[in-house]
Simulated scan of single mutants.
Amino acid sequence: MANRLPLLITLAGVAVLFLSIVFVFALVLGAMFFDGIEFTGGHTDAMASGLAWGLVA
């Protein structure tokens, strides 16, 4: 079992790398088909809060 440990660690690393590539691929496809992916809550929310701060000042 001890001589299989480096192989198992390598396979686990390859699996994590593969899953991260698949995740990025899914994000790109989602951005292409669903008009982008907004991680910050959306540009309209940011613009609305900016306008509110402009009106206060």
Score class of each variant (00 low, 15 high):
L8C: 02
L8R: 07
L8P: 02
L8A: 06
I9C: 04
I9A: 07
I9P: 00
I9Q: 11
I9Y: 05
I9F: 05
I9K: 09
I9H: 04
T10P: 01
T10K: 13
L11D: 03
L11P: 01
L11A: 04
L11V: 04
L11Q: 08
A12R: 06
A12W: 07
A12D: 05
G13S: 07
G13R: 05
G13C: 06
G13I: 13
G13H: 04
V14C: 01
V14Y: 01
V14P: 03
V14I: 06
V14A: 02
V14Q: 00
V14F: 02
A15D: 03
A15P: 04
V16C: 00
V16P: 00
V16T: 02
V16H: 01
L17K: 01
L17I: 10
F18N: 03
F18Y: 06
L19H: 08
L19S: 08
S20W: 13
S20C: 13
I21M: 02
I21F: 06
I21C: 02
I21K: 03
I21L: 01
V22K: 13
V22W: 10
V22H: 06
V22Y: 08
F23K: 12
F23D: 13
V24P: 01
V24K: 04
V24N: 02
F25I: 10
F25S: 12
A26M: 11
A26N: 11
A26C: 09
A26R: 14
L27D: 08
L27S: 05
L27P: 02
L27C: 12
L27I: 14
V28N: 08
L29S: 11
L29Y: 12
L29P: 06
G30S: 14
G30C: 13
A31W: 14
A31E: 12
A31G: 15
M32W: 13
M32Y: 13
M32D: 13
M32K: 15
F33A: 09
F33R: 14
F33T: 15
F33E: 13
F33N: 15
F33K: 14
F34I: 07
F34L: 07
F34D: 08
F34T: 10
F34S: 06
F34G: 02
F34M: 11
F34K: 06
D35Y: 08
D35V: 04
D35E: 11
D35P: 01
D35F: 09
D35C: 02
D35L: 05
G36Y: 04
G36E: 00
G36H: 00
G36W: 03
I37E: 03
I37K: 03
E38G: 03
E38Q: 09
E38S: 11
F39C: 04
F39A: 15
G41A: 03
G41S: 01
G41C: 00
G41L: 00
G42L: 00
G42M: 00
G42E: 02
G42N: 00
H43S: 09
H43Q: 08
H43P: 07
H43F: 07
H43T: 09
T44D: 15
T44Q: 07
D45P: 02
A46Y: 08
A46T: 10
M47F: 14
A48D: 15
A48L: 08
A48W: 06
A48G: 06
A48K: 12
A48E: 15
G50L: 08
G50R: 07
G50Y: 13
G50K: 14
L51W: 12
L51H: 12
A52L: 04
A52Q: 15
W53D: 14
W53Y: 11
W53R: 13
G54A: 08
L55F: 09
L55N: 11
L55W: 11
L55G: 10
